[in-house]
Nucleic acid binder design. Structure first.
Lengths: 154, 154
DNA sequence: CGAATAAACTTTAAGTATAAAATATTTTTG
DNA sequence: CAAAAATATTTTATACTTAAAGTTTATTCG
């Protein structure tokens, strides 16, 4: 009796566990580096990164949508960034419920230092992927993101 | 003047962002499913999964090592699993500092239900990877995990 | 033996995270 | 126009997370 193949589900599970483990390793290292080099955290970096991609700033709800974290969560992170003078909440004319979060000059300067270091850390950690492999795998994962986000909107 | 190639670091950064986004999407879905179907959470599932792989149980420190989370973190999760009657802390003969965490019968039964559902969810979400692709990518990521963990131990 | 060191855990403080409820403000509609 | 529904955000309650400090117990070694 020939050996049965393992079901594909087992291999997909293994793939998921590897994906999770590598992501967590990289994330932990980035988190630690941000803390050590800048006294910053990953969530704060993520918020600043999102704001730096949108001139004019983002509303709280847009921010939580882009980052895919809950509304209440963003409130706290923006509060702390505000305390540190890196972002400001600007009232939205015509809608007194909403506010626009923007990077301050200080925030922009700080973010560009952090972003440069961040890119270098990632480049080093993923150095075993040559450029072609990086492009190909990124595209493949983009496909996955596509199927996952379509489904969710159903 | 010919267009300069983008530096590899940009492509590695893009790869990292995709990796992060796909992992978070899958993780969020698993978290939500665990909550909805079992009233459970991912950290609790992870602890039970680790315990189920080691008959005889694990010491707190071993658990935090396997899961790569801090000591103090494991304390809280095990506390809650204990309250729910899914695990127990058994004293280690000869070392009154340590204790061995073990799944109870109830914990084992509960975990096997959750694990089956978990595998099916992952299989569905990663369904766009055929078996060969899953095996190949898992191997590639295993290599990445290797380089990342070597470095850290330096 | 006894002091110093190490090991196993827990506690604490601060930050991050979610879901759900509460608040305030628009917009829609009967 | 006023009641109802929808939006934008904050608050609350609970859980997870880490780093650092603290407690208790074991081990080492002078």
């Amino acid at each position: 009796m020939p050996e049965a193949h393992e079901p594909a589900s087992k291999d997909r599970l293994r793939l998921w566990l590897r994906l999770l483990k590598s992501t967590r390793l990289v994330e932990a290292e980035l988190r630690e580096n941000l803390r050590r080099e800048f006294g910053a955290t990953l969530p704060r970096f993520d918020v600043m990164a999102a704001l730096s991609r949108f001139d004019g700033g983002l509303k709280m709800s847009a921010l939580s949508g882009v980052l895919r974290v809950s509304n209440g969560n963003v409130t706290g992170i923006v509060d702390r960034l505000t305390d540190e003078g890196l972002v400001v909440r600007v009232p939205v004319p015509g809608d007194r419920r909403a506010s626009l979060v923007q990077l301050t000059d200080k925030g922009r300067a700080e973010f560009s230092r952090q972003a440069a270091a961040h890119e270098a850390w990632v480049d080093h950690m993923l150095g075993s992927f040559d450029q072609g492999e990086a492009v190909a795998l990124a595209a493949r994962l983009d496909g996955l993101v596509g199927t996952l986000t379509e489904e969710e909107d159903t």
